[in-house]
Design a protein around this nucleic acid. Structure first.
Lengths: 128, 128
DNA sequence: CGGGATCCGGGCGGATACTG
DNA sequence: CAGTATCCGCCCGGATCCCG
């Protein structure tokens, strides 16, 4: 089950569909995935709660992203057959384990935001 | 310089352009960025080397991505005025520090690839 | 309330041709 | 070799309408 792309070189071959790097990149490629995971990391939430907390997401993209996360086993969807219907979203164990590397990326971006901004300004100044 | 979005809640507001989460997501949003950083993590490389190692990337996207990384101060571009011209790309200190969180994500994806694949198959089976 | 279905525009990214 | 310039198809994602 482990393909050749699970060697250190896997990072170089995004065209291998089995490559874990490629897959996870496809998952977090859109900004919504990471934001939703982050919200659910604080606790379970309903559809409307997620929509309120993730500023600017459309209903279509929220649904679409949640379906993908459910399919990947990162999010569990529970329907309560009340009237009106209530739907709760929660991280699975797998999804919860993704929080740590995502937070590592957040920490990095916070620590380096100043450097990056300064570099951008310098670059733009040097190129008009 | 630290905005309100640097509180734990920043993850919820991708519409704040100053939000570090939003910025880093925009950077690694395309799959090429992470792949190029990964390659350069093993050592400096020339344009044609990168193009060979990052399978399937077009010359346009390679140039475009490298420019963005240079602007963000993650990659340093050095031109050797020989004939024909030689251009070397290398990670800056900032870019090298990004390797660790990126590898954390790779490790996660390798460890969970089996779970994710199984979940996908189960999901697809349950929904035709 | 929590979606599904459809239409549509903008932009990402590939292909090609050309250059210092 | 390492790009720049241009054209263009396609798909992402928003807007809107509808439903159980």
């Amino acid at each position: 089950m482990v393909t050749t792309c699970s060697e250190p070189d896997y990072v170089a071959n995004p065209y291998d569909a089995d490559c874990p790097t490629r897959h996870i990149l496809d998952r977090i490629g859109d900004r919504w995935t990471v934001l939703i995971i982050g919200i659910l990391g604080r606790g379970d939430a309903r559809f409307s709660e997620l929509r309120r907390h993730v500023g600017g997401i459309s209903q279509k993209m929220l649904t679409q992203t949640l379906r993908g996360l459910e399919r990947d086993g990162l999010v569990r969807r529970t329907v309560f057959p009340e009237v009106p219907v209530r739907v709760e979203y929660a991280l699975t164990d797998s999804g919860r384990s993704l929080l740590e590397p995502l937070y590592a990326l957040q920490d990095w971006s916070i620590r380096h935001l100043g450097d990056v901004s300064a570099s951008q300004e310098a670059y733009d100044r040097a190129n008009q």
